[in-house]
Amino acid sequence: MQIFVKTLTGKTITLEVEPSDTIENVKAKIQDKEGIPPDQQRLIFAGKQLEDGRTLSDYNIQKDSTLHLVLR
């Protein structure tokens, strides 16, 4: 499925993911596309910070959802 990741600069990254993918996995995909190390990434969805060990389906993230990427 496709999800979107919006950065603070207003750029939107499109990712191909599975509901069973972990947040860690998603961060690795963002690193592949953007070169941002996962340890600098914070992903936010519906006002919640997403934890590495959980999956997209744990957070009820569905296709065409938009996550927000904050760098630390």
Score class of each variant (00 low, 15 high):
residue 21 D to M: 04
residue 63 K to A: 04
residue 31 Q to R: 04
residue 55 T to E: 15
residue 33 K to Y: 07
residue 22 T to G: 08
residue 14 T to F: 05
residue 30 I to F: 09
residue 5 V to G: 01
residue 48 K to M: 15
residue 24 E to A: 10
residue 68 H to R: 03
residue 57 S to Q: 07
residue 25 N to G: 03
residue 11 K to F: 05
residue 56 L to F: 01
residue 49 Q to Y: 08
residue 65 S to D: 13
residue 14 T to N: 14
residue 1 M to W: 03
residue 38 P to G: 12
residue 28 A to P: 01
residue 37 P to E: 11
residue 8 L to N: 04
residue 22 T to M: 15
residue 51 E to A: 04
residue 44 I to F: 06
residue 57 S to H: 14
residue 24 E to L: 03
residue 65 S to L: 06
residue 14 T to W: 06
residue 22 T to R: 14
residue 48 K to H: 12
residue 16 E to I: 13
residue 61 I to Y: 01
residue 29 K to Q: 06
residue 68 H to A: 14
residue 71 L to D: 14
residue 15 L to I: 14
residue 31 Q to A: 05
residue 18 E to S: 08
residue 56 L to G: 00
residue 16 E to T: 09
residue 56 L to D: 00
residue 13 I to T: 08
residue 46 A to G: 13
residue 51 E to S: 05
residue 38 P to M: 15
residue 34 E to Q: 08
residue 7 T to F: 12
residue 52 D to I: 10
residue 30 I to Y: 02
residue 36 I to N: 07
residue 19 P to S: 07
residue 33 K to L: 09
residue 19 P to F: 06
residue 38 P to N: 15
residue 50 L to H: 00
residue 8 L to V: 09
residue 38 P to A: 13
residue 60 N to V: 08
residue 7 T to R: 13
residue 56 L to S: 01
residue 5 V to D: 00
residue 8 L to M: 07
residue 32 D to L: 06
residue 69 L to E: 02
residue 34 E to F: 04
residue 7 T to Y: 09
residue 56 L to K: 00
residue 64 D to Q: 02
residue 65 S to T: 04
residue 40 Q to Y: 10
residue 41 Q to K: 03
residue 56 L to W: 02
residue 16 E to Y: 05
residue 4 F to N: 08
residue 68 H to Y: 02
residue 14 T to D: 14
residue 2 Q to R: 15
residue 61 I to L: 08
residue 4 F to K: 03
residue 1 M to Y: 05
residue 66 T to P: 15
residue 45 F to E: 04
residue 36 I to R: 07
residue 24 E to I: 08
residue 25 N to V: 13
residue 20 S to T: 07
residue 29 K to N: 09
residue 19 P to L: 02
residue 3 I to A: 02
residue 39 D to R: 07
residue 70 V to R: 13
residue 7 T to W: 15
residue 61 I to M: 07
residue 49 Q to E: 09
residue 18 E to H: 12
residue 43 L to T: 01
residue 58 D to Y: 03
residue 1 M to N: 11
residue 63 K to L: 12
residue 27 K to L: 15
residue 61 I to A: 06
residue 37 P to T: 06
residue 33 K to H: 11
residue 67 L to V: 04
residue 61 I to S: 01
residue 37 P to Y: 11
residue 40 Q to I: 03
residue 54 R to P: 15
residue 48 K to N: 04
residue 36 I to Y: 06
residue 61 I to E: 00
residue 58 D to R: 02
residue 40 Q to G: 11
residue 21 D to S: 05
residue 22 T to K: 06
residue 60 N to L: 08
residue 64 D to Y: 07
residue 46 A to T: 09
residue 47 G to R: 10
residue 65 S to K: 05
residue 5 V to N: 00
residue 56 L to N: 01
residue 21 D to Q: 08
residue 17 V to K: 00
residue 58 D to L: 08
residue 20 S to L: 12
residue 50 L to S: 01
residue 45 F to Q: 10
residue 19 P to E: 09
residue 27 K to E: 01
residue 72 R to A: 12
residue 12 T to N: 09
residue 29 K to V: 07
residue 56 L to M: 11
residue 57 S to Y: 04
residue 23 I to P: 07
residue 16 E to P: 03
residue 67 L to T: 04
residue 56 L to Y: 01
residue 31 Q to P: 07
residue 65 S to H: 02
residue 27 K to Q: 14
residue 31 Q to F: 14
residue 2 Q to T: 14
residue 30 I to N: 01
residue 33 K to P: 07
residue 68 H to Q: 09
residue 65 S to I: 01
residue 51 E to V: 02
residue 26 V to Y: 00
residue 22 T to N: 03
residue 60 N to A: 13
residue 21 D to R: 03
residue 55 T to F: 09
residue 29 K to E: 12
residue 35 G to T: 03
residue 46 A to R: 02
residue 45 F to R: 02
residue 51 E to H: 05
residue 12 T to P: 10
residue 24 E to S: 12
residue 45 F to I: 03
residue 51 E to Q: 02
residue 42 R to A: 14
residue 57 S to I: 03
residue 3 I to V: 09
residue 19 P to Y: 03
residue 5 V to F: 10
residue 4 F to D: 10
residue 14 T to I: 14
residue 47 G to Y: 02
residue 18 E to Q: 03
residue 65 S to M: 13
residue 64 D to P: 01
residue 59 Y to F: 05
residue 67 L to M: 05
residue 70 V to H: 13
residue 17 V to I: 07
residue 38 P to F: 14
residue 26 V to D: 00
residue 9 T to K: 13
residue 19 P to V: 09
residue 26 V to G: 00
residue 19 P to Q: 07
residue 32 D to R: 11
residue 41 Q to A: 03
residue 21 D to E: 08
residue 28 A to I: 02
residue 54 R to L: 02
residue 40 Q to D: 14
residue 30 I to K: 00
residue 23 I to A: 06
residue 43 L to K: 00
residue 50 L to G: 01
residue 57 S to F: 08
residue 43 L to V: 05
residue 49 Q to S: 09
residue 18 E to P: 12
residue 53 G to P: 08
residue 41 Q to H: 14
residue 62 Q to I: 13
residue 62 Q to T: 11
residue 40 Q to N: 06
residue 39 D to W: 04
residue 28 A to R: 12
residue 49 Q to T: 12
residue 11 K to Y: 03
residue 62 Q to E: 11
residue 60 N to I: 04
residue 24 E to W: 11
residue 49 Q to W: 05
residue 72 R to D: 15
